[in-house]
Amino acid sequence: MGDKSGESLGTVLVAGAANLAIALAKLVAGLIGGSAAMLSEAAHSAADTVTELLLLVAVRRSGRPADRRHPFGHGKAGFFWAMMAAVATLVGGAGFSVTHGLHEISHGEELSNLTPSYIVLAVSFVIEGISFTKALTQLRGEAERHRVGPLRLVRITSDTALKAVLFEDAAALAGLLIAAAGLLGSQLTGSALWDGAASVAIGLLLLVVALTLIRSNLSLLIGQAAPQQTEVGIRAVLLAQPEVEDVVELLTMMIGPGEILVAAKIDFRDEASAAGVEIACEEVDRRLRECFPGVSQVFLDPTPTVRR
């Protein structure tokens, strides 16, 4: 858990530093050229910077050890702060971009020197690409450890910091291309419509990303189960124990980034003694933690199967 948190923390710090530098450069270029798309991109990067700060809080808070008041740890604090980060993207980035773009479409503003904007867009694309590559490298490493494809892992991962950085960096790269297309369209046609439309498109892109992340974090906050493939593996480990007759009920819950709570009602074989059941429970606990490093809490309840 410590190594994984450290890796996610590094990914967040790289993304945050990149977004802060990019936001300032886009703001200057946007003011010089009078481009709504560039100012929207500046708001986008500023919102992403706030997002990274909140993700930094998420990583730090979720890594705090368990205490008397929080016996299962503080993992879910990471889900909460990651959701707040998504809300910041929704309000700060998407809201500004859409409203500013619509204002330019309706009123029209004359664009001036766009050369700084093109330079900033190109440099920003390189910087965002570096940040995205780091996040993608971490994703691929985790996918190899979990033996699943990167695309599947990004859908099911409870590492909210990594997921947020991946989504936001991908949106940033797409937003840069949209802004460049808007600037070029306005420059070739002499109409601010293209620039305003690009600003609105950037806002809608951020809206989709923010709502996706909010939905994902909300699901984790209210008690999302472990991925189905993991549950199947856990059930197989339980049934492989010689003293186990059947798994009456299996419940799992993500209690933090990469942390899984397992609760199961187990029907033990009738011939198993009380001491044998205790030993079997200890063995199952050990094997589950060994096979699934994310399993941090295991509760087994001996329960006979009700036969009708």
Rank of each mutant, 00 (worst) to 15 (best):
S186W: 09
A181V: 11
S186P: 03
A170F: 12
D3Q: 06
D3W: 13
F268M: 02
E259Y: 05
V208K: 04
T157E: 03
L20F: 13
V247C: 08
F79L: 05
V244S: 08
V87N: 08
R60P: 09
G30V: 15
A46F: 10
G95W: 04
P150W: 11
T157D: 02
S45W: 02
L250P: 01
P304K: 09
G34C: 07
G95M: 06
L31R: 02
L220M: 14
L13H: 05
V148S: 09
Q297T: 10
E110F: 02
L136N: 15
Q241I: 00
L177E: 06
V208W: 09
N19S: 13
G63K: 07
V59F: 07
E7T: 15
I105T: 08
I222P: 08
G75A: 07
V57C: 07
L184G: 01
G2F: 15
V232S: 02
L27H: 02
L111F: 10
V165G: 04
A198S: 03
P71F: 03
P71V: 10
S191Q: 11
T160H: 04
L153V: 08
L239Y: 02
P242F: 01
L53M: 13
G75H: 05
I255T: 14
A197W: 11
A171V: 11
L153N: 11
G233Q: 14
G2W: 15
L53Y: 01
S296V: 15
G33L: 11
Q228P: 00
H44Q: 14
A88G: 15
S219Q: 10
I105M: 12
T11M: 08
H100K: 03
F167Y: 07
G101T: 12
A161D: 03
H146W: 15
L213A: 12
P304W: 02
A88N: 12
A15I: 06
R287D: 10
A94K: 12
A240I: 00
S35M: 10
L239M: 13
N19G: 05
F167G: 02
I255V: 15
T115I: 13
V232H: 02
G233R: 14
A280E: 01
W81G: 14
V120A: 11
S40N: 10
M38N: 04
L205V: 09
L250W: 01
A23F: 09
H107Q: 12
V237E: 13
F268D: 00
Q241Y: 00
D195Y: 05
R269A: 12
A198M: 03
R307V: 13
L300Q: 00
A88Q: 11
V284D: 00
P71A: 09
I130A: 10
L20P: 09
E144F: 00
R215F: 07
T230E: 04
E243P: 00
R147Q: 08
E271R: 12
A197R: 09
S5G: 03
E249I: 01
A174I: 14
L111E: 03
L139F: 05
R235H: 05
A122V: 13
A236N: 10
A85R: 03
A174N: 07
V148I: 14
A23G: 09
E283Y: 00
A46I: 09
E7S: 12
S106P: 00
